[in-house]
Write a protein that binds this DNA or RNA. Structure first.
Ligand SMILES: [Mn+2]
Ligand SMILES: [Mn+2]
Ligand SMILES: [Zn+2]
Ligand SMILES: [Zn+2]
Lengths: 138, 138
DNA sequence: AGAGATCATGCAACAGAAGTGCATTTAATG
DNA sequence: CATTAAATGCACTTCTGTTGCATGATCTCT
């Protein structure tokens, strides 16, 4: 049983061939990925399977979904210690308007916001847009 | 020349019948609207016209686009003094997970975030999700 | 090991949003 | 009024997300 298989197993996700491939693919990238990104990475991949795999991964706390403002859902592996399911790991995300890549800034948490009392805050999403490190130095 | 016509004219937007209707519709609501919302509000409206009207409104600083995490673009009228075009008016938005409505919290600005120097921040989007005032008291 | 149940995958099809091209209508200008 | 530019309507396309159902794979229990 490999490391990846153990990881999936720990999260009660059956480590099938496809799931292991998807997990490894996401682990190999340091940016968030869209469903289409995975689809393009594996010629022989079925969109629906990928879709449902990401759903499963998200439900089991293996990945978290990211709204980066492009209206295309992105996903990224949860870092060890990121307990999305329990009480939101409110780190922020950076979206590069040049290369269109989105990254997790896991060390940077969303500051607490004082809202009018009538609002009940349950979750928050903060995305900074601009130029990423790869695109700024060239 | 009515107030609305003057407003559009000031922003170099020709005040056509449809544009005036759309403007008034958005002004009558205190929530952000999606393209489909406008489409449903006017039986006889052409989706493309609405689409391009919103584009024009946005370019001319009459409305601003909102990414509330639903992957559906919303739009809201800019408040007087909101100069989105020049240097982003970084107020935050609230999205109610119960009634699915999104509102501008124009008084609440996005706090400044210290990023690693390699990132060049140009814009930011902060959405709080939870239960809105209408949905919390019942 | 074999039978039955459960879960994962593949295939097809659909819904909704976003966007484009082009013809036609409407409005501005001299 | 004639010319020109802008706005609208219509048709069509692309892309993302989503569901239903049949089939294939895996687990469980005897
Ligand atoms: Mn993240
Ligand atoms: Mn707003
Ligand atoms: Zn970049
Ligand atoms: Zn609500």
């Amino acid at each position: 049983m490999t490391e990846v298989e153990k990881t999936l197993d720990n999260k009660s996700v059956r480590p099938t061939a496809m799931r292991i491939l998807i997990y490894k693919f996401m682990a190999s990238k340091n940016t968030a990925v869209a469903l289409t990104d995975i689809e393009n990475a594996f010629e022989k991949a079925e969109r629906t399977t990928l879709y449902r795999t990401l759903k499963t991964f998200e439900e089991k706390g293996i990945v978290h979904q990211i709204d980066d403002g492009t209206n295309i859902s992105k996903f990224a592996l949860c870092q060890p210690g990121c307990n999305c399911e329990i009480d939101q790991d409110l780190h922020l995300h950076f979206h590069c308007s040049h290369c269109d890549k989105t990254v997790c800034l896991t060390e940077h948490k969303i500051p607490h916001i004082n809202l009018p009392a009538v609002y009940i805050a349950e979750d928050a999403n903060l995305v900074i847009k601009g130029i990423c490190d790869s695109c700024s130095d060239h």
